[in-house]
């Protein structure tokens, strides 16, 4: 079975985010970019399935700017077999919406015929939490979101999902779309020899037009603002003082 893993290039999760002065978005010029942490978990899971003999080929896909090539090289260095880059914009500040991404992924799935698509549950930039669900709808496939355990057994997979009340286990028919949560696994680091080898792995470059998908946004950004700042607080010297302050504030 082939596994397809979409990966997104996003601002590194340790970087302090700054809103651009003109309110058009967040400043991404000269900022460290990395693979979306949830997508790393998806890549790792695909590799583990391959190591377990349940997947025989891993194809990583990224949709966005040309620089997403680096993100794909990271996926290849971790253990993906080949990569497809779909250049959909040349503006590093443009975010391709989940619906457009899902449409491009659908076209790639139609070509590649994977048995499993493993996605991150959300991207830490737009925090939409939507691409996997949308792809699943477009394909008419089964969907298992927020996975913390994935157990593929022949024509079905048992997936444990992190939900508001605790954990829910469902069984989905293959082919399936699975979106992964934080506790599914701990992604490996790529070793230096694997980073070197990854440079020679195949990376196809396509454009959104090759798949006939219109990527123009449905949601127009009216403005982007800093969140309201909290008023500065105080340091209390003891538990007694804390209780006194909480009583004054009417909090207890």
């Amino acid at each position: 079975m082939k596994a397809l893993v979409p990966v997104k290039r996003v601002i590194d999760y340790n970087v302090k985010v700054r809103v651009k002065a003109d309110g058009s978005g967040v400043d991404l010029a000269n900022v460290k970019m990395s693979m979306n942490p949830f997508d790393e978990i998806a890549v790792e899971e695909a590799i583990r399935l391959k190591e377990a003999g349940k997947v025989d080929e891993i194809v990583a896909v990224s949709i966005g700017v040309k620089q997403a090539q680096e993100t794909l090289r990271t996926a290849l260095a971790m253990g993906a077999d080949r990569a497809i880059l779909v250049v959909a914009t040349d503006d590093v500040h443009a975010d391709i919406e989940p619906l457009a991404v899902a449409k491009i992924l659908k076209a790639i799935v139609d070509e590649e015929q994977p048995g499993l698509v493993l996605c991150g549950k959300q991207a830490i930039d737009n925090d939409m939490n939507a691409t996997g669900q949308m792809l699943s709808a477009l394909l008419g496939w089964s969907q298992a979101t927020f996975a913390s355990e994935v157990d593929v057994e022949g024509n079905s997979a048992k997936i444990t999902r992190e939900v508001d009340g605790g954990l829910q286990t469902i069984s989905v028919k293959m082919p399936a779309i699975v979106t992964v949560d934080l506790r599914l696994n701990e992604p490996r680091y790529a070793s230096l020899p694997n980073i070197m080898k990854a440079k020679k792995k195949p990376l196809d470059e396509k454009s959104a037009a090759d798949y006939g998908v219109d990527v123009s946004p449905r949601l127009e950004v009216v403005k982007t603002e800093e969140p309201a700042q909290r008023a500065a607080g105080i340091t209390v010297g003891s538990v007694d003082e804390l209780i006194e302050k909480l009583k004054e504030a009417g909090a207890v």
Binding site: V19, I124, D127, R218, L219, V222, T224, E225, P227
Partner: peptide, 20 residues
């Protein structure tokens, strides 16, 4: 058609207008 939502873990608030 227009809504506010947090992005980047709430480090920015975006106002989005839908054309759908």
């Amino acid at each position: 058609a227009t809504f506010e939502r947090p992005i980047y873990a709430g480090n920015a608030i975006q106002t989005m207008k839908s054309s759908d």
